[in-house]
Design a protein around this nucleic acid. Structure first.
Length: 410
RNA sequence: GCGUCGGUGGCAGAGUGGUCAAUUGCACUUGGCUGUAAACCAAGCGACUUCGGUCUACGGAGGUUCGAAUCCUCCCCGGCGCA
């Protein structure tokens, strides 16, 4: 076997005693990411409402952007001419790009429906029927993405034009975007899809993974400056997760992404099954996760990297994380609440800004309210994850996690 | 004083004889949001209810009618015009 060069390197520095949690360092061409780490999502080359220097001040190490969105607007060529994603958005730290695989889901099976990455309880029969990709269903229900063996055909949500992604095309675009780490093109399935479909999609994702990797290896330049992560799928089924992990691990990626959908109850099991089949030394990214509790769950199961839109989305919509759970600033009770956003949080936003003030801004539709909440939430999650890393290094992660959860659900 | 137009739920503003407890927007209340079609989406928003309804409501008081937010009379209030 030929020695494969990689643009990144990862070392595990400390393993927790009671769980699979570990602390490490991920060296990238644009700096070190101390793990576990949370990377804020900057889909269209910006973290909504937040400037790069503010991100840095909040403690973010890296930013994750999106291939599909940047391809449509402003086009990967524009980003390339700017000198790559980081230069383009004036972020000098590490960058990552998602492959567009999530849009196969969000513009496909999930289009026009209420289903998300997570199921809560049973899925209705109607949702179940619509949870797989089918050209006929697509035309009937207005889906913007239709899948086949070779790739995915998208209708642009921006202007309705028709586009085609294949694994090779996704890699080509991601090379132009130039992030330090990017993902193989995959199919993120609906949690409502039945077992048979999860298997079919997973196997297709494996074929796409091999094609993505092959396409990446054909570019000597890209291999010097960019790393590629393969994505494990398999939905909420442990046997599929195990099988997928084995297959993706065998291909020789620089790192692993755990993708797809779960039901809340089965997440830990699916994760454990996948991790048990993955090489210890590879960095592992839990795609699209998440909520504080889910991040801690991920860390406990050996995840090193996380990304999620939740901090900025719920923040923009007027909700913030606190040590005692999420609060909705739109609620009437906060109009006269002159306490800080989260009295127990140390980030630079919450100690100085009152709930009453943010409540006013949010009610008045002022973007500053959304920005404050987004900044606070990103700061909160970054602090949570940084605290987890500290705890792992000090050998008391389990205690840290238990303490946090006790407060969060009180 | 005369003429004229108008007074509808927190606000704006539809409706002009039954299908009106009253369209719609905003405000308000509460949910939701996990690799961002999302500064978004959903539900509720007179009172009581055995959930079938019952009662009180469209400036006020009378009246016409089987039936009135809608038609008539008087009164009160406001805009505009003329004295």
């Amino acid at each position: 076997m030929v020695e494969e060069m990689s643009a990144i390197s990862f070392v595990v520095e400390k393993r927790a005693g009671g769980s699979a949690a570990r602390a490490g360092s991920l060296m990238t061409p644009h700096g070190i990411i101390r793990t576990p780490a949370f990377t804020p999502v900057g889909t269209k080359a910006n973290v909504k409402g937040i400037l790069p220097e503010q991100l840095r001040a909040l403690g973010a190490a890296a930013v994750l952007a999106n291939t599909y969105h940047l391809y449509l607007q402003p086009g990967e060529g524009m980003v390339q001419r700017a000198g790559g994603l980081g230069k383009f958005m004036a972020w000098d730290g590490p960058t990552m790009t998602d492959s567009g695989g999530f849009q196969v889901f969000s513009l496909g099976a999930a289009f026009g429906k209420t289903i998300s990455k997570f199921t809560k309880g049973e899925v209705t029969e109607k949702e179940d029927q619509l949870a797989v990709y089918d050209e006929e269903v697509a035309s009937q229900h207005g889906q913007l993405a239709v899948i086949d063996e070779e790739g995915v055909t998208f209708t642009s949500h921006v202007d309705g034009s028709l586009h085609r992604f294949t694994p090779e095309r996704s890699v080509e675009i991601q090379h132009a975007l130039g992030a330090d780490i990017f993902f193989a093109f995959d199919e993120c399935t609906s949690p409502a899809a039945p077992y048979e479909y999860q298997r079919e999609a997973m196997e297709r994702t494996h074929r796409w993974a091999a094609r993505s990797l092959k396409a990446h290896r054909q570019s000597i330049d890209a291999r010097k400056s960019q790393a590629i992560f393969g994505i494990v799928q398999g939905g909420r089924y442990e046997n599929l997760r195990r099988e997928s992990a084995r297959e993706i691990a065998s291909l020789g990626f620089d790192g692993i992404g755990i993708g797809g959908s779960f039901s809340k109850e089965d997440m830990a099991g699916a994760l454990q099954a996948a991790v048990s089949e993955l090489p210890e030394e590879l960095p592992k990214h839990f795609l699209g996760i998440g909520e504080p509790g889910d991040i801690l769950e991920g860390i406990a199961n050996g995840m090193d990297l996380f990304d999620c839109v939740a901090p900025t989305r719920i923040g923009r919509h007027g909700s913030v994380y606190t040590r005692h759970g999420i609060i909705h600033l739109r609620n009437g009770r906060y109009r006269d609440d002159f306490t800080p956003l989260d009295p127990e949080n140390r980030d630079f936003v919450s100690p100085y800004i009152t709930r009453a003030y943010v409540s006013h801004l949010v009610r008045a539709g002022e973007m500053t309210g959304s920005i404050i909440c987004s900044m606070h939430n990103i700061g909160f999650i970054l602090e949570l994850v940084a605290g987890a890393r500290e705890a792992i290094l000090n050998g008391r992660f389990d205690e840290y996690r238990a303490d946090f959860l006790r407060g969060y659900h009180s």
